[in-house]
């Protein structure tokens, strides 16, 4: 059981680390180029790009950076890789899709001639990943765009940093390349406003994470609507809301939407409705919510104090669920 709980915590930790990597890497471009060259940089996360050579498909990269409306960076962040290397081909396929001339940049004709493709990898696997990619070059792997592998990881001294270092390739923006080449430490304390704000990106978080964030949003909703009163073991607050409203609250509060406020087009809505439905179903099953309508669009959230801290409460709730599922699978 401890291991399973540990797995949930690790999953959530990986999720946050991915967000820190996205925020940290994008901010190097944003601040360095503005500080030294007064160049405008647009950032986007999970933006929908069409593929020039396959109009049926689209991609939503973790990282999107547009520099001075002329060049850019598209990237994927992998905080962990499976032990089985045969599964790594999925990442290769994903990156090769980015090598198609992507359409959808936030400029008038939506196309830019030059962009880099970066793979951000946690430093625990960066060397293995580099070797793996090198072994695949010229076989199944060939990029038309510059391809760069960047390792990231924490560096803990008197201050805590997120450090980025180029493991392979050359970034097209010389200033940023020279900055990251031998290792660029980004002090975490300088990004706490963003780190405290972004808690969802375009990848599905663990159910416990979603339930925790929805609880936080419901608390905010109660205060905003002047329905909040002190919560203790005996008091509860019933809040009428809908799936759509929760999706919007999570998007507004914890997603990267503020990055895209001046270029919101092509930006898929995160979290996805399905992610929220799963969480609400779980609340209903544990008695923390009840449906208001047969269509299961509207519900009542029962805000209450939990004996454990709220995040632990939902991790435990999901753990019990996973354990039951495992037991069922034995029969």
């Amino acid at each position: 059981m401890e291991n399973s709980l540990q797995k949930i915590k690790e999953f959530n930790d990986n999720y946050l680390n991915t967000i820190y990597a996205i925020v940290g890497f994008m901010n190097i471009y944003k601040y360095e180029l503005k500080k030294t060259k007064q160049i405008d940089v647009k950032l986007f996360q999970g933006r929908k790009f069409d593929m020039e050579n396959d109009i049926e498909k689209y991609v939503t990269p973790d990282i999107g950076i547009l520099i001075d409306e002329k060049s850019g960076v598209i990237g994927e962040v992998k905080n962990s890789f499976p032990k089985d290397k045969s599964l790594w081909t999925e990442t290769i396929k994903q990156l090769l899709q980015y090598d198609d001339n992507l359409i959808g940049w936030p400029i008038e004709n939506e196309i830019i001639p030059l962009y880099d493709i970066v793979l951000l990898v946690h430093d625990s696997r960066s060397r293995d990943v580099k070797d793996y990619f090198l072994s695949k070059f010229n076989e199944e792997l060939k990029f038309n765009h510059p391809f760069i592998i960047i390792e990231y990881g924490r560096s803990d001294e008197a201050k805590h940093f997120f450090k980025f270092r180029i493991e392979y390739g050359e970034l097209s923006e010389p200033l940023i390349h020279s900055k990251i080449y031998s290792g660029c430490p980004v002090p975490m304390e300088k990004l706490v406003v963003e780190y405290s704000k972004f808690k969802i990106y375009d990848s599905k978080p663990h159910l416990s994470w979603r339930m925790w964030l929805i609880y936080l949003c419901m608390t905010d909703k109660a205060t905003e609507e002047n329905l909040y009163h002190k919560l203790n073991k005996k008091t509860k607050i019933e809040l009428e809301t809908s799936i759509e409203a929760v999706v919007e609250l999570l998007r507004k509060t914890y997603s990267f939407h503020s990055f895209h406020k001046n270029h919101p087009e092509r930006q898929p809505q995160f979290p996805k409705k399905d992610w929220v439905i799963e969480a609400i179903l779980k609340y209903v099953s544990i008695g923390e919510a009840r449906w208001k309508d047969e269509a299961h669009e509207e519900f009542v959230f029962i805000l209450q104090q939990h004996s454990k801290d709220v995040k632990d409460h939902y991790e435990d709730t999901c753990l019990i669920d996973e354990r039951n599922a495992n037991q069922m699978s034995l029969f």
């Binding site: 008197a158 201050k159 805590h160 002090p187 975490m188 304390e189 706490v192 780190y195 405290s196 936080l216 608390t219 905010d220 109660a222 205060t223 909040y228 002190k230 919560l231 203790n232 104090q305 709220v310 995040k311």
Partner: peptide
């Protein structure tokens, strides 16, 4: 992260140096 049950405020708290 802290949720204040008295008035519904919430906070992130960091120690980074």
């Amino acid at each position: 992260t802290i949720i204040d049950y008295l008035d519904g405020s919430s906070f992130d708290l960091w120690v980074l140096n």
